[in-house]
């Protein structure tokens, strides 16, 4: 399987032109509109954006977890290790979920079963994917609880999730996500519900425990989290990718006005104080997306063409693309200059 994966341009995951629609009483809208990105083995890709931008829907599409019949993957390809996950029969997909691709959710209390003890849930996951007797699986689960630094792991194996704090529950989720040594971990806002000191501990754990060639797709709204964890970044705005590039390219030379505005508007711990550079207006509802570029209503650089055409993802530097007609002019300027 790995050989096959390597044969595919060395990419582990390749999402191409993904379109996901949702049907509501108000009509059909595109929650994800032509999203493309790729993840190399061992890489941490941050998919960043505000609530409703489509980042979580994108992540759920990879495992085909979009709630039907309301939501539907209406187009595109998702290739994982060379196989198109959208074409795969359900039984094959089942083997991939949990084993090859695992997920860490925002709310560990919602992701763990409240009725079963932690140990049993871990053992079940192991035995579902590995031929292992109960005793060996139990031993492996206990070892992983120790690896994610849960004190008294033997005792915690018998605990119900509600008996653990949010930070401890998230550690259990991380153990569950990592123990089968998947090729890809999808982490959807894994530390948003946690305090900063616990968040820092979790970052260190994930970094230290993941295998070298394990890739992570990290979904977050928090540029600070992106900075701490990611190698490359894809910024989403209103169902589309606004910009993608390496961590350094996005933070040091952002080319899309949305990314630039976002970075300039975030309060900094150190450095300049006083008034913040706010982006004007607000995120539009999917039924009110403007024509052409979705960001143009809020953009200080918008001109006629932005309303008429959707800007393609222009390459401004090697590996750095931005969906903006002004991208080439903006890329060299510091974001504070807006």
């Amino acid at each position: 399987m790995m050989v096959e994966g390597k044969a595919h341009n060395g990419r582990l995951l390749d999402v191409e032109d993904l379109i996901v629609t949702f049907e509501t009483d108000e009509g059909i809208f595109r929650a994800v509109d032509g999203v493309s990105f790729a993840i190399e083995p061992g890489e941490v890709l941050g998919l960043v954006g505000e609530s409703g931008c489509g980042k979580s829907v994108t992540a759920l599409s990879i495992l085909r977890l979009i709630p039907g019949p309301v939501g539907k993957i209406a187009g595109g390809k998702i290739r994982f290790q060379g196989k198109d996950l959208l074409e795969l029969p359900a039984s094959k997909l089942h083997n991939i979920r949990g084993q090859e691709i695992s997920m860490i959710f925002q709310e560990p209390s919602a992701a763990l079963s409240p009725l079963h003890r932690v140990g049993r849930q871990l053992v079940e996951t192991i035995r579902l994917h590995r031929k292992m007797d109960k005793k060996a699986a139990w031993e492996m689960a206990r070892e992983w609880l120790a690896k994610v630094r849960i004190p008294d792991p033997e005792e915690r194996m018998y605990a119900y999730p509600y008996q653990l704090s949010g930070g401890m529950q998230q550690r259990v989720m991380i153990a569950m996500a990592l123990m089968l040594e998947p090729a890809l971990i999808i982490a959807d806002e894994p530390t948003t519900a946690l305090d900063v000191t616990i968040q820092a501990q979790i970052f260190k754990l994930i970094r230290g425990l993941k295998r070298k060639d394990t890739s992570i797709l990290l979904i977050t709204h928090d540029m600070g989290v992106v900075w701490e964890m990611c190698d490359r970044v894809a910024v989403m705005y209103a169902s589309r990718i606004a910009e993608k590039g390496t961590l350094e390219q996005i933070f040091n030379a952002p080319a899309h006005p949305y990314t630039r505005g976002l970075l300039a508007s975030i309060p900094k711990l150190t450095g300049a104080k006083g008034k913040l550079k706010a982006i004007r207006g607000q995120v539009p509802s999917p039924f009110e997306y403007p024509s052409g570029c979705h960001f143009r209503d809020r953009c200080p650089h918008a001109f006629d063409r932005c309303a008429a055409e959707v800007p393609p993802l222009y390459e401004v530097q090697e590996g750095h693309r931005a969906s903006c007609f002004a991208a080439h002019e903006l890329v060299g300027k510091p974001p504070e200059a807006e």
């Binding site: 505000e50 540029m223 508007s265 008034k275 550079k277 706010a278 995120v283």
Partner: peptide, 11 residues
């Protein structure tokens, strides 16, 4: 609040 709106309210 959303990140892009936070700055407006703080200001």
């Amino acid at each position: 609040l959303d990140v892009s709106v936070q700055a407006q309210v703080i200001n």
